[in-house]
Design a protein around this nucleic acid. Structure first.
Lengths: 205, 205
DNA sequence: GCTCATCCATACTGGTCGGTATGTAATTAG
DNA sequence: CTAATTACATACCGACCAGTATGGATGAGC
């Protein structure tokens, strides 16, 4: 009789989730493997069976949790009929639905970039790939929106994409310092203002 | 005969500078006191004579090095005759003069916010104070520029200030991941575009 | 039913870190 | 000149941490 079933993939997922939570709270390097393990009642044997090292665990968290998290946020906006409308709505969502935890701990993606990309090439490459995909998604969506007449034709999609991403992460990052929703709201109001200004003038088109 | 003079304040400054460099490279928590000390040939006795703890050393770095560093950047722009011109010129400078080291390691202020503000209240309060001062400086300069007719009157200085700061830190932060000047340039081109759009229309007042 | 690879638990190690205890030389105060 | 305080230097400590060695339990394949 097997009291405890063995479910390798479940164990692996539990470890990934716990690692993500700990990393989000403390950063990667300050994340303690012992803390992660004791939180979910798994032992070090299991961890090192599934992951070769702490770095590899971190890489897996980036690829399997951070990447989907980032993409879930921006993908819908690029597929919407009107990108500007969708982007503005996204700004409102990011302002509104932000819990206290998310306000204090910030964006996991941004956190990892700031902490790890200058220290470990493995992290930098993976995080940069996520960033490049994000940027390309926004860039292509902007070009499409220009073709559809939703965005002014005199702006450069390459600049718009880099700028918008930087704004979002910048606002969330600064929100961590102020720890007040007011800063976040003000920052996103500025971003919404910029997005509105991307729309073509009525006489144009 | 004193072979080695005792210069307490010089020693203290050496420690601060070395700590700042190490923190800029590795972050605060990963910064090793032993590494800092061996870099400048000072011993632990000196360090703990001048600073009560590693945290207090970090606080001193924030107040005495990071704060002036941040203020040196934005103060000139707020005192210029035309804020928009000065801000755009600042963007160009930040893009151009950015060395490889600065590109990889990012902004010390932004780094510390992202790493420490959710973990240690002492850091958060000090960093937040710098941020609030920065914001208020931009905010008041924007209001003055509105009175002078250099900035559109239908924008909110509180939103502009939070947004512009977020953009700058966001661009530099994302630049760390891409580690290419291209991303930085594109982001700042977007910011310059936004700043231009803050100017009043020709027909307006 | 046997074998063997997978999966996980336990106990341990070397190394690093922040911090301290103690001593001593330089400087100042009286 | 002396006493006391300041400004360091050296040696050491306990805590923690990533990683490993080892062994046992489980399930798959034959």
């Amino acid at each position: 009789m097997s009291v405890t079933k063995r479910q390798p993939d479940v164990t692996r997922q539990i470890l990934l989730d716990a690692a993500f939570a700990e990393i989000h709270r403390n950063g990667f390097r300050a994340a303690s493997l012992d803390a992660i393990l004791s939180n979910v009642g798994v032992t070090k044997g299991a961890l090192y069976h599934h992951f070769a090292s702490k770095n590899e665990l971190g890489y897996a968290v980036v690829e399997e949790i951070v990447r989907p998290f980032v993409e879930e946020n921006w993908k819908p906006a690029t597929e919407a009929p009107n990108m500007i409308d969708a982007a503005i709505e996204l700004c409102r969502q990011l302002t509104r639905q932000r819990t206290d935890m998310a306000l204090t701990n910030g964006c996991p993606f941004n956190n990892l970039i700031n902490e790890m990309s200058s220290v470990d090439e493995g992290f930098r490459q993976r995080l940069n790939q996520i960033l490049q995909d994000w940027r390309q998604g926004i860039s292509e969506a902007t070009a499409r929106a220009q073709a559809r007449g939703h965005v002014r034709k005199d702006v450069d999609p390459a600049a718009v994409s880099a700028f918008v991403i930087s704004c979002i992460e910048g606002c969330v990052g600064m929100g961590k310092a102020s720890q007040s929703r007011e800063f976040l709201e003000a920052g996103f109001r500025g971003l919404i203002d910029y997005l509105e200004h991307l729309r073509p003038e009525p006489h144009e088109s």
